[in-house]
Design a protein around this nucleic acid. Structure first.
Lengths: 336, 336
DNA sequence: ATGAAAGCGCTAACAC
DNA sequence: GTGTTAGCGCTTTCAT
C-alpha cells in the first residue's frame, strides 16, 4: 500500500504539503504542486478514504433514503445524485426505508455508524415530517427535493405551474373542452403548482372550472384508474384527463381502454414525470419531463455548501400520441 | 462523542473486551458481555465506522454498479441488496457507469478510495467481460447475478428453464398454436434457459418449432416492437408471442395495438420480469416474477463468505389478461 | 479469558 | 509557504 509518507519521501517534501495538494488548499507553490503530483502519479498513490474520514471527521458520503414504494422518479434521482457525487469525490450510499420502520429508527440507523455528511430526500419521503424532525435532531445536513413541506433542511424547489399551464393549454388547443384533473393527495390540493397551472390555463382558454372534474389521487396507478372511472361515469364525462403524475395517467388509460374508448379520440390523457412506462404505452403518453439531473445537481450543491450557483431549471412538455394523434409515434424505448 | 474508551471505563474493563463484544468474537464470558452491553446502552455508544475501517482494513461497504441504461430489474436488485446489507451491518454504495467510460476507469474509480469489500453486478453489466477482468485485476471480491458469462467472481444463478416452459405450456393451453419467441441477444441464443424452456414446451405440446417464429431482440422496448412487427408481417403470423423480457413484450403490445389487433384474442403476449410497466398496461401483461429479494440475499451472502446456506429460488409465473381473457383484471398498481 | 501497547493513513494545529 | 507533532477511534498483536 502506497501511503502519503511514500509520496512525501519521493517528492522530498513534508507530508502536510502532500495533503495540501491533495485537498486543493491554497498556499502551495505551483512548482511544489507539480513535484507532488508527479510523485503521486509515479507511485500510483490513492488516498485512503477511511483514514481521511477519521482524521477529518467527515465521511465524504451522502445518504439517499429510498422509500419502499417504488417510483422511476426516485430511481432517476438516485442515479443523477450518484453521478453528481462522483464529480465531487463523494459517494452515495443507499438506504431503504423498511416497511413499518419508525422514522426514528430509520434515521438512527442511517446516521449512526456511517455518519454521512448529508442526507438527500425526494418525494415521498421528503414530505414525511417525522423523518425530517428525526434528522434535525441528529444535526445531520439535509436537502429535500421538491418538498411541499416546510421545516428543517434546505429545499430544492421545482416550478411546475408554468408547464402545467402549458400542458392544459396544449390539450385545449387540440380541441378538447372538458378537461378533467386527477389531482395530488395534498390536503389543500389548491396549494399544488400543478393544480394552479391547470386552473389558470382553463381560465385562459375560457373554459369553466368544474369541481366535479377534479378528483384526488394518491399518485398510484390504482388511484388513477379509480379516479378516471369516477370521471368517465359522470353524466357529462370529460373528453380529456390531465393526471398529475404518470402512474395515475396510466391508470386512467387503463380505465378508458377497459370501456373501449379510443385514446386520444374519445379521451385525451396526459401525465407528469416522463416515466419509462409513459414511453412504452400505445399510444405513448403525453407528459412532462422534469429536469432531474439538474435537480440532483442542485441538491448536492446545496448539501455541500455551494448554494451560490444553483441552476434555474425548467420542466419540459413532451407531446405524444395520447393527446395528439400521429404525434411522436417513434418514442425511444428504454429497457425497463 | 462517546468512544470505546468511555465504554471500557464505564464497564470497568479493557477496551479489547469491548471490541470483542462488539464484534461478537468468541471467548467472552456472558457476564462480561452483559456488563459491556449495559455500558454501551447507557452511554448510547455508536461505533465509528471510519475508525473500524482504518484499523481493520475492511470497509463494510459493498459497491453496486448500475448501468446507465435503466431497468426496473436493476433497481429492484439494488433495493433488495441494500436491504440485505443493512441486516448484516454493511452499507451499499451506488456507482453509475458513465456513458463512454472505459471499464478500466470505471473499476479504478469505484475501487480506489472507497475500497469496498465487494462489488455486486447484475445484468447487463455482469456480462461485460472487460469490467469483470478489471475487477479481477484489482483483486476485489465480486458477485455476479444471473450472468451468462463465466470468469472471475462468484455467480448467483437463476433457473429460468422450467418457468419458461411453464409459460409456453400455459399459452398453448389457452388454445394458441402458433407461438413465437422474441429471444435474447446472446450469440448462441439456444444457450439461453428461456429459449430452452420455449423449445421443450413446444415439443411437449406437439407444436412444431419454426425458425421464422424466433426473432432476437436486445431487451429494449424498441427491439421488441421491431421484432413483433416482423413476426406479424409473416404470411402466417403467430397467434401468441413470448418475449424474454417485459420491455420487449411491451414493444410487442404496442406493435399489435398499432395495427388494431386485440390482445389476447388476436394475439396473446407474455413477458418476463414482472416490471412495473407490466402491471400498468391494459390488459396487464402475463409475465414471470423473479425471486429478486432471494437473489440479492444470495449474492450478498456469497460476497460476505457465507456461501454455505444459499437459498433455492424459483421464479413464478404470473398469469394476467394479456394471455388469458378475464384473468387478474385487478392488478396491484404501484407508483412508477 | 482479558489487558496493554502499537499502529491503521490521514489531517489539524501549530511552529518555523 | 512548508514542516513537525499529535492525535482521530478503532483493531491487532502479544502478554498475561
Amino acid at each position: 500500500m502506497v501511503t502519503i509518507y511514500d509520496v512525501a519521501a519521493k517528492a522530498g517534501v513534508g507530508m502536510k504539503t502532500v495533503s495540501r495538494v491533495l485537498n486543493n488548499e491554497a498556499h502551495v507553490r505551483p512548482a511544489m504542486k507539480d513535484r507532488v503530483m508527479k510523485a503521486i502519479d509515479e507511485l500510483g498513490y490513492r488516498p485512503n478514504l477511511a483514514a481521511r474520514q477519521l482524521a477529518a471527521s467527515r465521511s465524504f458520503l451522502i445518504t439517499f433514503i429510498l422509500s419502499d414504494v417504488f417510483s422511476s422518479y426516485q430511481t432517476s434521482m438516485l442515479v443523477a445524485a450518484s453521478t453528481e457525487c462522483r464529480l465531487r469525490n463523494y459517494h452515495l450510499v443507499v438506504e431503504v426505508r423498511d416497511q413499518d420502520e419508525t422514522a426514528e429508527r430509520l434515521v438512527e440507523r442511517v446516521t449512526a455508524n456511517l455518519r454521512p455528511d448529508g442526507i438527500m430526500l425526494v418525494p415521498p419521503l421528503c414530505n414525511d415530517a417525522a423523518i425530517v424532525r428525526a434528522i434535525e435532531s441528529k444535526g445531520t445536513r439535509l436537502v429535500r427535493v421538491a418538498s411541499t413541506l416546510s421545516g428543517y433542511g434546505d429545499i430544492v424547489p421545482v416550478r411546475d405551474t408554468d408547464v402545467s399551464h402549458e400542458m392544459v393549454a396544449h390539450i385545449a388547443a387540440t380541441g378538447k373542452s372538458r378537461i378533467a384533473l386527477i389531482a395530488p393527495p395534498f390536503d389543500k390540493a389548491a396549494a399544488s403548482e400543478r393544480v394552479t397551472g391547470y386552473r389558470s390555463a382553463l381560465a385562459d382558454a375560457r373554459l369553466p372550472y368544474r369541481a366535479d372534474y377534479v378528483v384526488k389521487g394518491d399518485f398510484t396507478f390504482a388511484s388513477g384508474k379509480a379516479a378516471a372511472e369516477q370521471l368517465l361515469a359522470l353524466p357529462e364525462p370529460p373528453d380529456a384527463i390531465f393526471a398529475t403524475n404518470d402512474a395515475m395517467a396510466l391508470g386512467a388509460m387503463a380505465a378508458a381502454r377497459q370501456i373501449g374508448l379510443d385514446i386520444p379520440r374519445d379521451i385525451a390523457i396526459a401525465g407528469f414525470d416522463d416515466s419509462p412506462g409513459s414511453r412504452t404505452m400505445y399510444p405513448p403518453l403525453t407528459t412532462v419531463r422534469q429536469p432531474i439531473p439538474g435537480m440532483a445537481r442542485n441538491a448536492i450543491s446545496v448539501l455541500l455548501g455551494h448554494a451560490d450557483a444553483l441552476e434555474e431549471l425548467v420542466p419540459e412538455l413532451i407531446i405524444r400520441g395520447s393527446t395528439q394523434p400521429g404525434a411522436a409515434a417513434e418514442v425511444h424505448g428504454e429497457d425497463m
